[in-house]
Amino acid sequence: MYEPIRTKSVHSTMAGTPSDFPHRSREEELDIQLAGHLSALLAVTDELRALAPSAGLDAAAERLAQQVARLRGGPAPVRAPGSGADDAVSLHRRAHALAGRALVVAASRADTAAAILAAQQMDVHAAALEPRELASH
């Protein structure tokens, strides 16, 4: 019913031997993913800082930038000033979700420092949402 394949696969011959193209380990992939989640959380934190500056948000942004730099093995991430375009409630919701994603990846990677930071940020943003969520019901 099916005709057998008579030619070599293009995928196996394009790169030659399997060692000709880079492979990343699971840990490297998790580092990249965690750095991405923390970078996104940093961007949202900067947006919140533009809306309502506070020493707590400044400290959180600095700690997030340090973790991203550590995970990427380089200088601190490039940061843009927040535009203040979104409202605080939606930003806190987004930050809470991003911190949760970062926590999951940090836990699977066994990165205690990043996991603690992500859990703290989840608590901060949940607390910021709590009074508003209760008032709206």
Score class of each variant (00 low, 15 high):
Lys8Cys: 02
Glu28Thr: 07
His137Ala: 15
Ser90Ala: 11
Ser19Tyr: 01
Ala97Trp: 01
Arg26Asn: 03
Leu41Trp: 02
Gly100Ser: 06
Met122Tyr: 02
Arg72Ser: 05
Val68Gln: 02
Thr45Leu: 05
Val124Lys: 13
Leu30His: 05
Leu103Arg: 12
Leu34Val: 08
Arg72Phe: 05
Thr112Met: 06
Ala76Ile: 05
Glu27Ser: 08
Ala95Tyr: 00
Pro18Val: 09
Glu47Phe: 06
Pro77Met: 01
Leu134His: 14
Arg132Thr: 12
Ala59Arg: 15
Ala107Ile: 06
His96Asp: 13
Ala106His: 05
Ala61Tyr: 07
Ala65Met: 05
Ala113Lys: 07
Ser83Asn: 09
Thr7Ile: 05
His125Ser: 14
Leu64Gly: 07
Gly36Ile: 04
Leu57Ser: 10
Gly84Ala: 10
Gly82Met: 07
Val44Arg: 13
Leu98Phe: 04
Arg79Cys: 07
Gly100Arg: 06
Ile5Leu: 11
Asp123Pro: 00
Ala110Lys: 09
Gln66His: 06
Gly56Tyr: 00
Ala126Met: 13
Asp46Tyr: 01
Gly100Cys: 08
Glu27Thr: 08
Thr7Met: 09
Arg6His: 08
Leu91Met: 10
Leu91Gln: 06
Ala65Val: 06
Ser12Asn: 07
Pro22Tyr: 03
Ala52Phe: 00
Met122Lys: 14
Ser25Met: 02
Ala35Leu: 02
Pro81Arg: 01
Arg132Leu: 15
Arg24Ile: 13
Ser136Ala: 15
Glu62Asn: 13
Leu64Ile: 10
Glu3Trp: 03
Ala95Gly: 12
Arg101Cys: 07
Thr17Leu: 12
Ala99Asn: 02
Asp86Val: 03
Arg93Glu: 13
Arg72Glu: 03
Asp86Lys: 04
Arg6Thr: 13
Arg93Ser: 08
Glu28Gln: 14
Ala88Asp: 13
Leu42Asn: 03
Gln66Leu: 02
Ala113Glu: 14
Ala114Phe: 03
Ser54Gln: 09
Glu3Ala: 15
Thr17Cys: 07
Leu34Ile: 05
Ala95Val: 06
Phe21Trp: 04
His11Trp: 08
Met14Asp: 04
Ile116Arg: 15
Thr13Asp: 06
Gln66Asn: 12
Pro53Trp: 08
Leu34Trp: 04
Leu38Ile: 09
Pro75His: 04
His92Tyr: 08
Phe21Met: 06
Pro81Ala: 04
Tyr2Phe: 08
